[in-house]
């Protein structure tokens, strides 16, 4: 346990001593901010038009025009940025040889994996926390569905944690950071777009693919629906890849 905390602290230090965390967070906030501003401007434009047409004014609200598209856009940006947070977690240690010392300290492999995973999750949460300023801005200009907002954030956070676990695993397999980033991005994207094939892969296969797809899961969170199966999906996704990372470290011991 103390080992886990030590590794968590070390990784947090690495994120914030180096420019990694600042760069990733800044990129994310600039892009998310841009989408927020664009969606908000769109809202003000359509509400002007809607003033003349009462039939559509009922359908224009912050939740549908701003929050939902914003969360969708943020989830795609995360797809690109999370691999950058996770790519060095194990790859760097393998490349520089520090993994040899780390694995001979009295910390078990699971503690090492969890320490690194939690550090990346923590940076991710800080990043998401910064975007709460958007909610404060929206509160000053009108009302929106807080429930949908919270469930969307929960969905995003669960998805982010899953991608981080996936990234941790891929980083543990290679000692090249670029390979780790590219492979994590590719793998995450596959889970993202796989549902597109469900329409032509037949009924059974299509159902399986839809179950595996991240985008379908995230959709229900965006509608404000939190189901047990969606939450379990992300929790299992995360646990599965953390387990694989743990195993991957163990096999590396055997290979020396």
């Amino acid at each position: 346990m103390s080992g886990l905390v030590a590794i968590f602290r070390k990784e947090m230090n690495n994120f914030f001593v180096s420019p990694i965390a600042y760069t990733v967070i800044a990129c994310f906030l600039v892009i998310a901010g841009f989408f927020f501003w664009a969606n908000l401007s769109l809202l003000s434009l359509v509400s002007l038009q809607a003033a003349n047409d009462p039939s559509i004014s009922g359908r224009i609200n912050l939740t549908d025009v701003v929050i939902r598209p914003l969360i969708q856009n943020m989830s795609i940006v995360l797809l690109f940025l999370i691999p950058l947070l996770t790519m060095r977690l194990f790859s760097e240690e393998r490349k520089s040889g520090t993994i040899e010392l780390l694995l001979t300290y009295p910390v078990n492999d699971l503690g090492i994996v969890l320490g690194k995973f939690l550090a990346a999750v923590c940076v991710f949460l800080i990043m998401m926390g910064c975007t709460l300023s958007f909610a404060l801005i929206m509160l000053t200009i009108g009302s929106f569905d807080i429930g949908v907002f919270l469930s969307s954030y929960l969905g995003l956070i669960l998805m982010g944690a899953s991608f981080i676990a996936l990234g941790v695993f891929i980083s543990s397999v290679t000692e090249n950071q670029i390979v780790a980033a590219a492979a994590s991005f590719g793998a995450a994207l596959m889970f993202w777009i796989i549902s597109w094939t469900s329409s032509f892969t037949g009924q059974t296969m299509g159902a399986i693919i839809r179950q595996a797809s991240i985008i379908e899961r995230l959709d229900s969170f965006l509608k404000g629906v939190i189901t047990l199966s969606d939450v379990t999906y992300f929790v299992f996704f995360t646990a599965f890849f953390l387990f694989l990372s743990f195993r991957s470290i163990e096999t590396q011991r055997w290979r020396g």
Binding site: N14, V17, S96, T98, I99, E100, L101, T104
Partner: peptide, 17 residues
């Protein structure tokens, strides 16, 4: 492990620390 202090070849250390 807690009884052994180990210094691997080429001294792998965290350069950024």
């Amino acid at each position: 492990r807690s009884k052994i202090g180990y210094l691997p070849e080429n001294v792998p250390l965290y350069n950024w620390m």
